[in-house]
Amino acid sequence: MNIFRLAGDMTHLASVLVLLLKIHTIKSCAGVSLRTQELYAIVFATRYLDIFTSFVSVYNTFMKLVFLGSSFSIVWYMRYHKAVHRTYDREQDTFRHWFLVLPCLVLALLIHEKFTFLEVLWTFSLYLEAVAILPQLVLLQRTRNIDNLTGQYIFLLGGYRGLYILNWIYRYFTEPHFVHWITWIAGLVQTLLYADFFYYYFLRFIGGRGVE
């Protein structure tokens, strides 16, 4: 464990807590893409299957349970909680996210580090995570408002993956044999997808005005 990875995990944890806070306290999911949340639930479900078969550390297992629990409860809130479901803008959240799942699955079947059931699903979860934010970014462009908890959520989510890239660079230089091109490329693509969001997010801070 290094400081970049710990900071990345904490930023990722903060992103889901900010979202849960928003949904639970103000009973609203306005501006939040249910489709992105569903993709994240699939990402965690397919990535953490090894929670039953391999034990890395208490921290690792604990965090996996937190991410699984939070992502599924956010989907539950947005789908089935009466008050929250009412605030979900279904007409705007229309990105065909199932079109993302199949290509990621095919790609994982073609490009992986080891052809085993767990490893292919793990690789699939990496590819899916890289593109899972797309429905949320599209929704954000439609609702044209980053000045709220959803904006903070996306900012933290992008920040976590950026910190992971620093973690991979650090591990590459400090650990022999630490080479994982698939993880690195998927992580880089994911972070690049946030580039324009970060641009407008920082503009908003510098300009101090609502950014269209």
């Binding site: 990875r5 890395v56 690792n60 044999h177 994982h180």
Partner: peptide, 10 residues
Amino acid sequence: DDEYHEHDEL
């Protein structure tokens, strides 16, 4: 050595 690495990251 191509020992199978365990995914130790989240």
